[in-house]
């Protein structure tokens, strides 16, 4: 099954993306905490792309596709046409260093890495895909 949404690159639209992911995932037999963590991971990637790759421009859009494969795998494709950056090359910062620096950001992609099982960056001719994969534990 495949689901998708497209929104302009404004941070106020993050809420719409979260509601969409929640809607798609609530049909699956997953715990609230599990669903919430996947919503968070997608939100983090979208926020990053909106801010850093698209300068929060409402003329740019971001597409999110959710592909549910059988019962054991969910793939989230986050597609934009902004300045692509390979999220896999992002160095994991040290939490204590961030605290010391009083910086207010920098842990979003760390959350994504810890929540998802696989992160891919696919650069096409005129768009980029960040692909997040979550393997689900077989229930019962």
């Amino acid at each position: 099954m495949k689901f998708n949404i497209s929104v302009p690159c404004e941070k106020s639209n993050l809420q719409r993306i979260r509601a969409f992911i929640l809607d798609v995932l609530k049909e699956q037999r997953l715990s609230d905490v599990e669903v919430h963590s996947m919503v968070l991971a997608v939100d983090e990637v979208c926020a990053n792309l909106m801010i850093h790759s698209n300068n929060c421009s409402p003329d740019h859009s971001i597409d999110v596709e959710v592909l549910i494969k059988a019962k054991n795998k969910i793939i989230f494709d986050i597609i934009d046409k902004g300045r692509g950056f390979d999220i896999r090359k992002y160095p994991e910062p040290d939490i204590k260093e961030i605290i010391k620096s009083k910086k207010k950001g920098g842990v979003g992609l760390m959350l994504v890495k810890r929540i998802m099982d696989d992160i891919d960056f696919i650069h096409k001719e005129n768009y980029n895909i960040v692909r997040l994969t979550k393997n689900l534990q077989p229930s019962g």
Binding site: E44, A47, I98, I99, K100, K102, K104, V107, G108
Partner: peptide, 17 residues
């Protein structure tokens, strides 16, 4: 109901102070 890294970042940024 929800907090993302941006919110965590706010708490983290005041720990030193």
């Amino acid at each position: 109901n929800y907090i993302s890294s941006a919110g965590l970042g706010v708490f983290m940024s005041y720990i030193e102070d």
